[in-house]
Write a protein that binds this DNA or RNA. Structure first.
Lengths: 206, 206, 206, 206
DNA sequence: AATGAATGAGAATTCATTCAT
DNA sequence: AATGAATGAATTCTCATTCAT
């Protein structure tokens, strides 16, 4: 009698092993054989649960995105004001569990590969537009309509940039610090720009 | 004697072909054979000019970094005030020639791979610290000493984040727009945060 | 489940094919592809059973050595006196099955390569010291202690030399003849050297 | 004006580099490029002085054989009695200059390869028969006609075996010791076998 | 459900050789 | 005479995938 319902278990094992392997070795060196070995299963079984390597990669990226989304949603549920909701998005993106070295490296690998892989690209687009949509919705309540688009774009870029710097840095990541910087940036987006302090600087902007 | 002075020519061809190939196919699918084919030479000749694939990749990344640096330096030479110099750094990073689709994709691929490849990692670190050092030096002239570090970190992250978004976006990149956003962010870093304008917003911060 | 227990079968096939191929083509021309072809398997499978080419070569040499050892041990089991045991060692080394042309050629190839390959070198050293130890132990019972070392060295060298001449000769090998020569040499080692027959010859030795 | 008569010089350089390279790396790893590099010339020039790699290898082996022959001939010129001449052959084979590690390793490599390479095989056969012929001629003056053949064969084999052991040994080679063992063996070949010392041993011989 | 045997393509790299200069 | 650029084949090894069991 076969073990029942192994499907989700095995899939989870393989997805986890995929993220780990990509995070540790990079996309180019993450072979099915290595992933299977890390998952503690035979290489043959991978194709029993996933159509091909691409399907496995897609599932892995979907898992990463889903974890991130959960991290944000969890915090959104506790927020009530627009500002709180924006902080929730920021903090959700910088949640501690998102910063394990291998996970961050896997993220970057997926981003790089998504340029060339349509399935991954689609996943990333869906996620990115969802994030933008979240941000934009709250921004509308806080900034002038003319500035919503830029403010959203700017905050989203800063979040990504902070993440990227963390991914590439060899130092341990202080998620709180990243969050604070993003919150601070958000603060400046909300307030009207102060009058130019000194003429010379104003000149420099031109 | 053989055709003299082919070395720099071939090396340049191969480096260009490498960046193109990585940009189009991604790191994982950029094989020496494909690179050689794109450069219009035989696969064997690659190892006549580069010790191994890694040396070729390193040279390609070095080339990308060098182009970026030139782009910044060119603008720094025309700048005189600290603010102008910061704008030079921003604009240099967002120069039009830096935004060809394949080039940007190659950049991302190198960043992702740099996590796992010591030689690439070293190159990236050198470049990153040079950028930081440039920014920090000018920041010191413009913001309170206590805020130099954070301001530098924040601006550098935003530059990277804007770049990353451009890299991943399928839309054509408007470098001027990215520059404007970064300049605007820089503006907010320089000025002291204004007093909370209205109580309701203050409440939203809580 | 896959075809079970293929491991020892395939390994045996591949080892046999390796010895055959090296024996026929020499070390330099024995490629993994040719070996696989001779074994009737695909080139890829070789690395499923052996870590790399070196491991395959090592296994092949180990096999040759083991066959030789068995040939000696089989005869040692039937011997009772020291002299019989020495003859067993000689005859074991010159057993007919050790003289198939390809096998002898493989032996020579391995010896030559062992100089440059640490793993093969180690195998050869283990085997050589085992042979010496066997010989020395029996020699102790038959010759004066002062002469054990030289007698052992001399007999071992003669065995190797006879083998080598056979290996390089294009004529069919008469193992019995080689054995007889070695036994004869052994006989001279056992007896005290006769007094110098004529002074002039003694002088020539000096 | 081109340098005149470079031909023998370059050929000599290349032959020396070939022997060195084969001795250090083995036959399989001695490529034309490596040989040229060691000789301090470009890889292209090799084919200006030698038809192909095989011709270079053949010339190198011919050089080794010639050196050995010179070593013997030099000593033969000083010898007058048959025994002295046999000693000259032995000592010539074990001359110190023949025992540089790389040279001995090159010898072994050539022997192994000679099995598969007709040109090398021919060279080796010519040399071997010359050595045999030398030995046999002198043996005829010293031993009973019925034993000339075996005595020659035995002595030649011992010389080769001692050499082989030296080649494979990691220890420094004591050429004098090898010479002494061969001379001693020769001594036993010349004298009539003594009467059996004890019946039991005689029985063991049967 | 699961194994691991097996394949054949493709990877990086090295090679002997040729050739324009 | 000599260089080193250039080729295309061959090398070892890894890969995704299939399949009998």
């Amino acid at each position: 009698m076969p073990k029942m319902g192994m499907k989700p278990v095995r899939r989870g094992q393989l997805i986890g092993a995929t993220i780990q392997t990509i995070g540790e070795l990079g996309f180019a060196d993450a072979s099915v054989i290595k992933i299977a070995k890390r998952a503690g299963v035979s290489p043959g079984i991978v194709h029993h649960y996933f159509a091909d390597k691409n399907a496995l990669l897609e599932a892995a990226m979907r898992d990463l995105l889903s974890q991130l989304r959960q991290s944000v949603i969890k915090r959104l549920d506790l927020a009530s004001t627009p500002m709180e909701r924006l902080h929730a998005v920021i903090d959700g993106n910088f949640a501690a569990e998102q910063f394990h070295t291998t996970t961050v490296a896997a993220w970057l690998a997926f981003w790089a590969q998504a340029i060339h892989n349509p399935a991954l690209r689609r996943l990333r687009l869906i996620n990115a537009s969802r994030l933008r949509s979240n941000l934009r919705h709250e921004m509308k309540a806080l900034v002038h309509p003319d500035r919503v688009s830029n403010a959203t774009f700017s905050l989203a870029a800063l979040i990504d940039g902070l993440w990227l710097n963390a991914a590439l840095s060899s130092q341990t990541i202080d998620a709180g610090h990243l969050s604070a910087i993003a919150r601070n940036h958000l603060g400046t987006l909300l307030t009207p720009p102060p009058p130019p302090p000194i003429p010379s600087l104003e000149h420099a902007h031109a």
